[in-house]
Design a protein around this nucleic acid. Structure first.
Length: 110
DNA sequence: AACTTGACGGTCA
DNA sequence: ATGACCGCCAAGT
């Protein structure tokens, strides 16, 4: 039996090292691209209710843009969290995105 | 039961 | 380089 797509997303996100970030597409690809990146976003949307310790703030879109900052309760909560981990953010965009990018298919996957 | 929206991404114009 | 469209699947209305 396969775990729920969402559950797999949670595991991957929880495996993201501190000070690192990844993209929805990267996670989707790691899980097999079968489901589109949107499902990853939906999965994370559930996490805020799942009470899991999901560092969703470490997941951004492929632009390095904090698309879901509004879902963290505050306006800049996500940005502050990322900045606390060493991310350089300007105008909701991660400047050193490529430097801090963490690809599960590259780091976890063989 | 049907339509619309949604934390995206890639390709085409 | 910028803008627009399509794909993908699930949940909400």
């Amino acid at each position: 039996m396969e775990k729920d797509f969402f559950q797999q997303v949670y595991e991957v996100v929880k495996l993201i090292p501190p000070g690192r970030i990844t993209s929805y597409g990267a996670i989707a690809r790691y899980l097999g691209t079968a489901r589109s990146s949107r499902m990853v976003g939906w999965a994370l949307n559930q996490t805020k209710s799942q009470a899991y310790s999901i560092p969703a703030h470490r997941v951004v879109n492929r632009n390095g843009l904090l698309t879901g900052k509004h879902f963290f309760g505050g306006e800049d909560t996500m940005q502050e969290l990322l900045e606390s981990e060493g991310m350089i953010i300007e105008d909701n965009q991660i400047i050193n995105f490529k430097e801090r990018f963490w690809d599960p298919t590259k780091e976890l996957s063989l």
